[in-house]
Design a binder for these strands. Structure first.
Length: 468
RNA sequence: GGCCCCAUCGUCUAACGGCUAGGACACCAGGUUUUCAUCCUGGCAAUAGGGGUUCGAUUCCCCUUGGGGUCACCA
């Protein structure tokens, strides 16, 4: 396969949500799988909408998921002279002209078209003798209406008639190019082979094709991605409707591998039943032709499940531990790596993302006060009189006191206790578990005790005994 | 409104024109020595509607319906 040069070209108007990152991911995958380059280009030609800090934020977002760029970030605002040169060429060739109308006059034309229930076409109002372009007025492309048939790598065969071709503004009166012009110039100058972007641009493609011809360029491969849809309804995911910043997921302790995996399988499938893909696998298997044409709803529950899968089975333990660093409860601060690794070891299989770590593990680090609720609301324990509970817990204590607290010995002793007391695990183990954790849920009892250690376990049992 | 695009369980999706339309998430039930979770088993649940073409349509064609996009000195 010929090395592809793809790009991700966001405008710096805020953060990136999963939809934006998925677009970047697909473009990145195409570049990587062909041994090509992925370019980050910032489309900052609208000074009014620009949000300070966006460019850094976008870069941080891509870095987090592991989408590294080979060139960039290139800012369009640094390339104004280039657009000017290309625009001058079009003017010289008679393919661009200054727009003499005021916004009010334009508005009136649009009103007329609407009243007549016809689509507005600027070329119906092309001035006979346009003024010489002095840069103070918008510059319009002089189009040549015709039929178009083209192939979109995702959408397939597409076609339109001449009625969609119009004269559009390529240079604004503030000296900046429009997206419609700048991206075509940039893609040409940067030798972009695949334009991979969201599908809202499909309707504009014929206009671009017309411009490519006027510029003497052969268009790159076009790939229009379907939208990532909001969880409910039929709207595309948008910041306005509460789409989260992709970095929010970083903050909640999602693994970038899981995010990549999730995003790739949102709208793409390799015709198999495989659900879990590593980035390397995706680079090998991804294919624009297998991207769906319809939008895919963003379901965070699937992301959560997938992150759990990665935590449980795909990441090496040492690696997982390193990544857990920022998510431990405050009370874990004084504990060493060895202890925290043991805790992570027993908590791992119930962890879906790292933000859950504190609630799953805090009792390993701090002694919580005895909570009588835990017994009084327990299905079986609440039926037993206090002195019986006390006897059971005392028997447990005296056996555990003899233990060295390694896992095998603990398991053996707990089993013996069941026989000795003739109790069900639902009663005996629950009681010990509640006494030693003061938590509504915890890892398996023997595991928990082994991590907690002898002193701490006995101390907690004593505390519980005092309340019985 | 013109033009363009799309349509399989609630969600993500699979099915050279050919088995009872498969898998995953979520949910429900049961099981694995307590809880929560994992794991296992089972269950619920879909081809928008109508016409064609065909021995046979999820699949190909047409119409309808529904949804979306676009028609900016925004990208």
């Amino acid at each position: 396969m010929k090395p592809a040069r793809t790009r991700f070209a966001p405008s710096p108007t805020g953060f990136l949500h999963v939809g934006g990152v998925r677009t970047a991911l697909f473009a990145w995958l195409v570049a990587k799988q062909t041994g090509g380059q992925f370019i980050l280009r910032i489309e900052d030609t609208d000074k009014v909408r620009e949000v300070a800090g966006s460019i850094d934020h976008i870069q941080d977002s891509l870095k987090w998921v592991g989408i590294n760029w080979d060139e960039g970030p290139l800012k369009q605002s640094d390339r104004l002279d280039i657009y000017k040169q290309w625009a001058d060429k079009l003017v010289a060739a008679g393919r661009a002209y200054a727009d003499p109308y005021s916004p009010e006059e334009l508005q009136a034309f649009r009103g007329q078209a609407k009243a007549a229930k016809k689509p507005f076409l600027f070329r119906d109002h092309r001035p006979d003798n346009p003024p010489k372009w002095d840069g103070k007025q918008p510059l319009r492309f002089k189009s040549e209406p015709k039929d178009y048939h083209w192939t979109d790598a995702v959408m397939g065969e597409l076609s339109t008639g001449p009625e969609v071709i119009d004269d559009f503004i390529i240079m604004k009166s503030d000296g900046y190019p429009t997206y419609n012009f700048a991206h075509i110039v940039d893609d040409a100058e940067m030798n972009i082979t695949h334009v991979i972007r969201s599908q809202e641009f499909i309707a504009s493609v014929p206009k671009y094709l017309n411009l490519y011809e006027a510029l003497g360029l052969s268009p790159p491969i076009l790939a229009s991605l379907p939208y990532v849809m909001a969880p409910a309804g039929n709207k595309k995911l948008s910041k306005r409707d509460g789409a989260k910043d992709i970095l929010d997921y970083a903050q909640e302790g999602f693994l970038p591998e899981a995010m990549i995996n999730f995003l790739a399988t949102l709208g793409w499938n390799d015709d198999t039943e495989q659900e879990i893909f590593s980035a390397d696998e995706l680079i090998k298997k991804f294919d624009l032709n297998e991207v769906h044409k319809g939008g895919a709803h963003f379901d965070e529950r699937r992301l959560v499940w997938m992150d759990g899968e990665w935590i449980r089975g795909e990441i090496e333990f040492d690696d997982l531990y390193k990544r857990s660093k920022d998510f431990w409860p405050q009370s874990a601060a004084g504990y060493d790596d060895d202890y925290k690794q043991k805790v992570l070891g027993v908590v791992r299989e119930r962890l879906k993302f790292f933000a859950e770590l504190p609630e799953l593990s805090s009792f390993f680090f701090e002694d919580l006060p005895v909570d009588p609720e835990l017994i009084s609301s327990h299905k079986q324990l609440k039926k037993l009189p206090a002195d019986e509970l006390k006897n059971l817990l005392e028997s447990a204590r005296s056996s555990l006191e003899e233990s060295d607290f390694n896992i095998d010995d603990l398991t053996k002793r707990l089993n013996n206790l069941l026989e000795q007391t003739a109790q069900k695990p639902a009663v005996l183990f629950s009681l010990i578990r509640i006494a030693t954790t003061q938590a509504p849920a915890s890892p398996g009892l023997a595991d928990t005790l082994a991590v907690l250690g002898k002193d701490r376990s006995l101390k907690r049992i004593d505390a519980q005994l005092k309340t019985l």
